[in-house]
Design a binder for these strands. Structure first.
Lengths: 237, 237
DNA sequence: ACCTGAACACCGTTCAAGT
DNA sequence: ACCTGAACACCGTTCAAGT
């Protein structure tokens, strides 16, 4: 009945096996988990997940790679903590805000989530890879669900709304801001690329070139979110 | 005026620099690009992007890693072709289908896209990483845009609808089917995990445990897609 | 002219030896 | 009892030597 040792880092079984406060560490270790995760996030923000090296991280902490393995089973596990660390930055209200309609409150929540992940675009591949069930992910889910329930959503609709909106925000963010997305200065290149296509073969794409690129991202984000909220409005009892 | 040599594989500039039919290869090489990409896709389907090794791929092709570099500049470039290869499997209608409302046609298109990427869950991280502007991605975008235009969508709305729906499908698929998503047999574990949380701390999550897990995925997919389409219906002139 | 064995630099991970 | 230098196996990539 030992906890599954091969649980995938980031999976529910794995998070469940993680001690909330690692009791095996006594005294004040020279590097603690929080410092490692903070520094890892800083480096991921700078160079990306791929380019982050455990040696690089260890050097930045004035330590060695072997030391990291005293706190984390491996790179994947470390990255799962980095992802949850970012979710901890999302400001999720703890109670139903006064004088806001459900729609305004949900819009505000989705917006706060979006703005947080935009600050950490290189972390997006980690967030998209799995359903976030780390400590901060759980708290955020709980607060958002009870917000919806507080607005009178039936449990089932609240659950589905949460999934739909979460998917929308993450899906939008990674495709617009993730590593590999066109950088702002490349947007004009993408437009030129669409324009340079043969209009005989690509009539619609060349005609829509200006609408497919260069649209202010906030606006595009709000447009798609608005579609989802329109749909939810219709689904509400 | 040489083509940017450091263009990121998969980016517009990079695809633009790719010759449609590599003219530098004369005669019949023992391994051609198509065979490499097909085999790479097969291996990615089996073991995932991370675990795919160029040595593994070379062995499967009875070749050596150095040979692969005669056809691709590196692993990233190879993977960009794998991603576009999958987009080539999506059946996108070439003209407005008879007797279908725009909503039915769009629903059908999103569904076809969803079913294709579900067959290649390990490829999802590649699709999500960048706006797909490879040859097949371009053709799919063109056909879908002209479908919407054919139904009378204004150009701008068509472009935004395409982006919103594309984001929804990919975002949903990677979070439900991508590597790291709970496997079907783990769904019950995720439910037990939610249920096992302290109801005092997580009242909403424990109450919604059954609605957050085990929902048939087709149904959940259609629900969220329906929301977007409801919104589009409202936005149509 | 095209292919490739063998090497290179470097990665994640481990462990015996330090303090 | 805790930390870590140094090594290990293996990765993506390169190039000189083959045919």
């Amino acid at each position: 009945m030992t906890p599954e040792p091969s649980a995938v880092p980031g999976s529910p079984a794995w998070w469940a096996s993680q001690a909330p406060a690692p009791a095996y560490r006594r005294g004040r270790p020279p590097v603690d988990v929080g410092r490692i995760v903070d520094m890892a996030l800083k480096l991921v923000d700078e160079v990306g997940v791929q380019a982050l090296t455990l040696r690089m991280l260890a050097d930045a902490l004035d330590s060695g790679t072997a030391t990291l393995y005293r706190h984390f089973a491996g790179k994947d596990e470390l990255l799962a903590h980095v992802a949850d660390r970012v979710l901890g930055e999302v400001p999720v209200p703890t109670e139903v805000p006064d004088g806001l309609s459900w729609r305004e409150a949900v819009e505000r929540g989705a917006d706060a989530f979006y703005r947080t992940v935009r600050r950490h675009p290189n972390v997006l591949p980690l967030l998209v890879a799995q359903v976030p069930v780390g400590p901060h992910g759980l708290v955020n889910r709980e607060r958002t669900l009870s917000l919806l329930l507080g607005y009178g959503f039936p449990v089932e609709l609240a659950a589905r709304a949460l999934t739909a909106i979460g998917h929308y925000v993450i899906g939008f963010a990674i495709q617009q801001h993730g590593p590999g997305a066109p950088r702002p200065e490349d947007e004009v290149l993408l437009r030129d690329y669409y324009r340079s296509l043969d209009p005989a073969t690509y009539p619609a794409t060349t005609a829509a070139a200006d609408d497919l690129t260069g649209v202010p991202l906030e606006e595009e984000f709000r447009f798609g979110l608005g579609l989802v909220l329109d749909g939810l409005e219709k689904a509400r009892p």
